[in-house]
């Protein structure tokens, strides 16, 4: 059976939901960030698949930009986690309750 566009999109959807579930369920901020990376990667896969099957390079250019933004986002996010750890000595979301009513 020929591998079509739909196959790649389904893999991408599954990976996206796995990442989303990680973001929702895990309590460790670092693992939550890894879930975010998974979601970005799922979007990348969908873009590359579309680009391949519709014969346009634009999707791949977009993936290039997404990878760049993801890299800088990770750098800033991890710096925030380090700054948070310095103040609160924790990376668990359960311990961050200052916004609770």
């Amino acid at each position: 059976m020929m591998i079509g566009l739909e196959h790649y999109l389904i893999v991408s959807a599954l990976l996206f939901s796995i990442g989303l579930m990680g973001v929702i369920l895990r309590r460790n901020l670092i693992v939550i960030y890894m879930g975010l990376e998974l979601m970005l990667n799922a979007a990348n896969l969908a873009l590359v698949a579309f680009s391949r099957f519709t014969n346009t390079v634009d999707g791949q250019v977009m993936v290039f930009f997404v990878i760049t933004v993801a890299a800088s986002e990770v750098a800033v996010g991890l710096a925030l986690i380090v700054a948070l750890y310095r103040r609160r000595q924790t990376t668990e979301t359960d311990d961050l309750t200052s916004l609770k009513l």
């Binding site: 079509g4 389904i10 959807a13 391949r52 390079v57 791949q60």
Partner: peptide
């Protein structure tokens, strides 16, 4: 995805 009517018989064309 399945109900969006994507043409699954599209041939892969692009050489990136």
């Amino acid at each position: 995805i399945v109900s969006s009517g994507i043409d699954n018989t599209l041939q892969p064309q692009l050489e990136g």
